[in-house]
C-alpha cells in the first residue's frame, strides 16, 4: 500500500508542487490584511472555494444517462456548488459596496473642507 501511495505522489508531483507553493502564497497574502477587511475577506475566500463547482460539473457531465444515483447526486452538487459561488461573491460585493461609498466620502469631505 505504501509503495502504491508513493507512486501516486510521484505521478502527481507537480500538483503537489502547486499545493506547497499555494500554501505559502495563501499565508503571505492574508498576513497583510487589516482587521477591517477580515469579514469581507472570509466571505471572498468562501466564494473562491466554490471552485469545487467545476468538479460537480464534471461529475454531472460524465454521468451515464441511466445512472440515476449519479444524475441526482451530481445535479444536487451543481446546485449546491453554484449557491456557494454565486451567493459568496454577491454577499462579498454587498459588504464591499459599503466600503466603497465610505472611502469616497472622506475624499469628498476633505475636498469640500479645502474649498471652504
Amino acid at each position: 500500500m505504501i509503495a502504491s501511495l508513493l507512486s501516486f505522489i510521484q505521478q502527481h508531483l507537480e500538483l503537489i508542487y502547486i499545493v506547497i507553493l499555494s500554501v505559502f502564497l495563501g499565508i503571505e497574502v492574508i498576513s497583510r490584511v487589516p482587521s477591517v477587511l477580515h469579514t469581507p475577506l472570509m466571505s471572498g475566500a468562501n466564494a473562491i472555494h466554490g471552485v469545487v463547482i467545476i468538479g460537480a460539473i464534471i461529475v454531472m457531465g460524465e454521468a451515464p444517462a441511466d445512472n440515476y444515483l449519479a444524475l441526482v447526486l451530481g445535479f444536487l452538487a451543481v446546485i449546491l456548488g453554484t449557491l456557494n459561488v454565486v451567493g459568496g461573491f454577491v454577499v462579498t460585493d454587498r459588504m464591499l459596496e459599503m466600503f466603497k461609498s465610505k472611502s469616497q466620502n472622506p475624499n469628498s469631505k476633505s475636498q469640500t473642507a479645502k474649498s471652504k
Binding site: 500554501v23 475577506l41 471552485v51
Partner: peptide, 28 residues
C-alpha cells in the same frame, strides 16, 4: 475539500483555489 477535487480530476484551478483558501483560512 475542494482541492481534493483538484487531484481527482488533475484540475489545477480547483487545486489552487482550494489550497489558497485552505491556507488563508487557517491563517485568518
Amino acid at each position: 475539500a475542494a482541492a481534493c477535487g483538484g487531484f481527482l480530476y488533475n484540475n489545477p484551478v480547483m487545486l489552487t483555489g482550494g489550497i489558497l483558501v485552505g491556507s488563508a483560512g487557517t491563517i485568518l
